[in-house]
Write a protein that binds this DNA or RNA. Structure first.
Lengths: 97, 97
DNA sequence: TTTACGTTTCGATAATTGTCGAATTATAAA
DNA sequence: TTTATAATTCGACAATTATCGAAACGTAAA
């Protein structure tokens, strides 16, 4: 993975709220979609984190922009899933042979 | 690894110059010290990165503070080595089973 | 014990980033 | 087709961070 890309991914995970969003997405779905909990992501923000909808939107965009997650609009809601490829790539990089 | 700690590590690696310093330390020594190239770290900065000594000092402190490297004063110079433990821990975390 | 050099600290500044409220867009339900 | 709700965009602001020059510090060599 090229330097600029690694740094971008690290930056995406270097904010606590964003990291928690990422982990929540991971916990709630392992490569699957939210299915019956489609609204989840934004609900999560309202409950656990103290951030508003615009901030949430911003964070999701950053995570998606770093290819850490993939988002999709389903009806009025957003569903998200982890992009395992990026996570694996990053994991390999840290396994500094 | 606890959330605040992960985020701190990510933050330490989320700046390009700092990441390159980290990688250079890794490349030049794998758990060993700089030995005959003790001045290396700061020389590296002068050559490859376009940053001054104060900035370099700051970056090294951040990396050390995140437990990603260990620094040691040897004479007038600073030697650094990777803290494999942290790197491994982070690698494991990304291996989101 | 001076001097020279590598490193750090300090204070300042510019750039980046996290956050918000208000307005806008998109979609689904009434 | 109006209305309600979910999400995004926009503009602004506060907080954080990367960087520097100048000054201070520590150590080794002269």
């Amino acid at each position: 993975m090229e330097t600029n890309r690694v740094v971008k991914v690290m930056k995406a995970l270097s904010n606590k709220n964003r990291f928690e969003i990422f982990m929540e997405i991971y916990k709630t779905n392992k490569q699957a979609t939210y299915e019956d909990e489609e609204c989840f992501i934004y609900e999560f923000m309202m409950k656990k984190l103290k951030i508003g909808a615009p901030t949430m939107s911003h964070h999701l965009k950053e995570l998606a922009n770093a290819d850490l997650i993939v988002t999709e609009k389903r009806g009025k809601n957003i569903i998200a899933r982890i992009n395992e490829e990026t996570v694996t790539e990053l994991g390999n990089l840290l396994r500094l042979e």
